[in-house]
Structure formats: C-alpha cells, structure tokens
C-alpha cells in the first residue's frame, strides 16, 4: 500500500546503489524532481532504464550515478544531442557507460512482458537491423543480451523475442494522487503504467494530493496497492510538462544544449541547481 512521504524519504527508501531504475514519462510528465533527488543523494552504479533518456538521464549520467543505460532513443527532442550521454559513450566521462540498446517497440514490449509476469514479449521487429547483434558491436559482434529470433509454434513465422524488464524501482510523475495514495495521470500516458507494474518498487511524484480523485474517462489510474511511495512534488516534471498544470519549457531544452556541452559548465549547474538547492 502506498505510503505518502516527502520526496527525499521516498527516494532514500526506494533507490539503492546498484539498482536498476526506470524513470519513465514519454516527453510528458518526466520525473525531474525525483531524478534530481537521486543525484542529490549521490546514488551510484545504477542501471538506468528509459525509452527516451532525455535531459533527466543526461543529468544523472553526467553526475556519475550510472553504470549502464538501457534505452531506445537518446537525444534532446527537437534540439539535438545529449552531450553528457555522448561524453560518457564516446570518452568514458565521468565513467564508462555500458549500453543496452533497443527500438521503442522493443522497449515497450519488454515493459509489457515485465508487467504481465512473462519472461519475454514478442514482436515483429529488429530483423535485418544492426540492433539484433549490437548490445555490443557491429556486424560480427556478440548476440544482443535481450533480443532473440523465435519461431511461432502455430505458423512457423520467425518473430523477435525481447526479454522482460523488471526494474528494481520505477519512478514516474503524475498529475494527482488522493490521500489514500491512488494515482491518476492523463494526456500522453506513455509507458508509465507498465513500468510501475513491472517494477519491484515504485515512487510516484504528483503535482498535488487531493482528498478524492475526480473520475476521468481517459486517465490511467494506479491503485494505491500497486505503488510503494507517493510524494508531492509540485512542478516536479519541469522542464517537461504536466497537462492541465503547466506547459513544456522549450527554452530550457534549448538552453540545456549549451549547459551540457561543457563539463565545467555542467559541474556548475550541478552545484547550483542540484546541490545548492538542497541546502537552502
């Protein structure tokens, strides 16, 4: 049953060094406040899982929290590169970053398998692509750790299996929770439900905690008994957006391109925006 606690307490209890952590939110409702708290608590050796690493994982990678990244698209949407991610992959700074790479369809299905209690999911995908061999390297590289060809037992068609994702902890942001810890989110709901249901533990940050949730026909509801911790974090998905609360701060995404290009400037950003903020 969800415990409603302050954010720092939720992250402290749910996220441990060496954990596999999935922070999801497809452009919308990205859990930035929670990600920043993970940096602030100086978690290390995390396996970071996320379809679209975005600024939030650029920040965690640059801050040295990650050992490995499992992902399907690592860019700054509409702007360009994630420079901290690139620096880690291309120059092993601040530490080498192991990567396990998929397509969106593959990642989505891996979460579905995890949420469904199955060892793998199946799709028509990856065939003929370098991703099939690459968890590692190009044409002669080792087999991908989480992609295999399988034969349909009914038709004989060759399909692709991807292994289930079952993160130690999933972290998502939602518009609302009620005082019992039931969570409601709407708009682009991405992969959050699957991530929470696939994970062993979960933290949900919310814009507000209300006495009761108004029913919304298009909303995803995560009942309190599927969530470990709920924490109020108003504005907690900025600079992404929370439909009905605030818009995406496109300027911040543009500005990140400059901040993140330079190791020193990124270090200053960490000091003032993450560590400074904690001591106020």
């Amino acid at each position: 049953m969800a415990e409603i606690v302050p954010l720092a307490e939720a992250i402290g209890a749910a996220v441990h060094d060496g954990d596999a952590v999935a922070m999801e939110g497809f452009t919308h409702l990205i859990p930035f406040a929670a990600g920043h708290e993970v940096i602030r608590q100086r978690r290390r050796d995390l396996t970071l899982i996320r379809m679209t690493p975005d600024l939030i994982y650029d920040q965690l990678i640059g801050a040295g929290c990650a050992r490995k990244l499992v992902f399907s698209w690592g860019g700054n949407p509409g702007v360009g590169s994630l420079h901290r991610f690139r620096d880690a992959v291309e120059r092993s700074w601040p530490a080498p970053l192991e990567i396990e790479e998929h397509s969106h369809a593959g990642m989505a299905n891996r979460y579905v398998a995890g949420a469904s209690g199955l060892p793998f999911a199946m799709l028509r995908g990856y065939r003929g692509t370098g991703l099939m061999e690459a968890g590692g390297p190009g044409r002669d590289g080792p087999q991908h750790p989480s992609i295999r060809a399988v034969t349909c037992p009914f038709t004989g068609e060759i399909l692709t299996a991807v292994s289930a994702l079952n993160p130690d902890v999933a972290i998502v942001h939602a518009q609302r929770a009620d005082t019992s810890g039931n969570v409601q989110l709407w708009g682009i709901t991405g992969i959050q439900k699957e991530a929470v249901l696939a994970a062993r533990r979960s933290v949900v940050t919310v814009e507000e905690i209300v006495p009761a949730l108004d029913p919304r026909p298009d909303a995803v509801v995560l009942p309190a008994w599927t969530v470990s911790y709920v924490a109020a974090a108003p504005g907690g998905s900025r600079p992404s957006y929370a439909l009905g609360y605030y818009d995406r701060d496109n300027d911040a995404y543009q500005a990140w391109d400059q901040i993140s290009r330079d190791r020193e400037r990124f270090g200053q950003w960490l000091d003032t925006e993450i560590f400074g903020a904690a001591r106020v």
């Binding site: 399907s72 860019g75 291309e90 790479e101 969106h104 799709l123 995908g125 990856y126």
Partner: peptide, 22 residues
C-alpha cells in the same frame, strides 16, 4: 541513426533507433 564509426568505439554517438526500425 545510431553511430558514426564503429559501434563499440563510435566517432559520434547518435540518438539511436526510437520508433524508426518498426
């Protein structure tokens, strides 16, 4: 849209696949 150069030691790391392969 994945890498320029060798996958294990890329000259330029690009964003990757996203939805494109399927």
């Amino acid at each position: 849209t994945t890498v320029i150069g060798d996958y294990s030691d890329p000259k330029t790391r690009l964003p990757g696949a996203g939805g494109a392969p399927e």
